[in-house]
């Protein structure tokens, strides 16, 4: 390792006082921080392991499920048309619950209320596959958070959480990803933490996983108690992250170290 961890942590702490949002002109996807080899895995669909889940999601899209015996396709038709741009707009406001909802939550809600099927657990192969498939339909499109005043409160809460120090290391998301994104922590690039390619295939996980799994990993990293999957806190963070990354292209399924 180039830097002792304590030194890196000290640098991060020093950055807290000056943590500022990254200007739009400097926003860069995590892809830009990866080695050429990892970029190559992502760039080629024949070698990107995330495509295995996209394929599975595509099969599930056409498969009848639940008491309705309807598939996603029964209502939405060709995902290439109907789902194009959808992931770019999520999280969105959900009128049924009166709260904001993320893409995986929306897919599962649709499954339960329209297909009358059982709920798919967060991080299950099926839900990750469907989310990857829907997300993949927006690949190349810019992240475009909806201009919806009903999301304002949750988005503001997400920003507050992003800037709140937590855990035994007493770091906020912002301490690293706003103030020190150019730095390295051990051998790893810190990066700007933009949600451009979720679900992502992470080499460390050796599988695909959601943005919430990634955030839980970071929370464990700073020795904080992670929020629960599907919690309002995580959806709020996702809302703020989408706003923070507005304009960056969707890469689903991205590959990350």
């Amino acid at each position: 390792m180039r830097f002792p961890l304590a030194f890196a942590a000290a640098q991060l702490c020093a950055g807290i006082a000056v943590a500022q949002e990254i200007p739009p002109s400097e926003r860069r996807s995590g892809t830009n921080f990866m080695s050429a080899e990892t970029q190559a895995i992502q760039a080629d669909d024949g070698s990107n392991p995330g495509m295995l889940w996209v394929l599975q999601g595509g099969s599930l899209w056409d498969e009848p499920a639940g008491a309705s015996r309807r598939s996603c396709a029964s209502c939405h038709g060709e995902a290439a048309t109907s789902m194009r741009g959808v992931a770019a707009r999520y999280p969105a406001f959900d009128a049924a619950s009166g709260a904001s909802i993320d893409l995986a939550g929306k897919i599962d809600q649709c499954r339960m209320t329209r297909q009358h099927a059982t709920s798919l657990p967060r991080e299950s192969e099926e839900l990750l596959g469907l989310t990857a498939y829907v997300g993949h339909q927006s690949r190349g499109m810019p992240i475009a958070p909806p201009d919806d005043a009903r999301l304002d409160a949750a988005r503001a809460e997400g920003k507050r959480l992003f800037q709140t120090r937590m855990g035994q290391l007493d770091l906020s998301c912002s301490s690293c990803h706003d103030a020190n994104w150019r730095g390295r922590l051990g051998g790893s690039a810190v990066t700007q933490a933009h949600p451009t390619g979720y679900p992502i295939y992470r080499l460390e996980w050796q599988t695909i996983g959601s943005l919430q799994r990634r955030m839980r990993g970071c929370m464990v990293g700073v020795r904080a108690e992670p929020f629960a999957y599907g919690s309002a806190e995580f959806v709020a963070l996702e809302l703020y992250l989408a706003e923070r990354a507005a304009g960056l292209a969707i890469e689903t399924p991205a590959v990350r170290p």
């Binding site: 024949g46 070698s47 392991p49 295995l52 889940w53 599975q56 050796q206 599988t207």
Partner: peptide, 8 residues
């Protein structure tokens, strides 16, 4: 090129 989903 050939790939299969498997945890190995």
């Amino acid at each position: 090129r050939a790939m299969i989903a498997h945890p190995m």
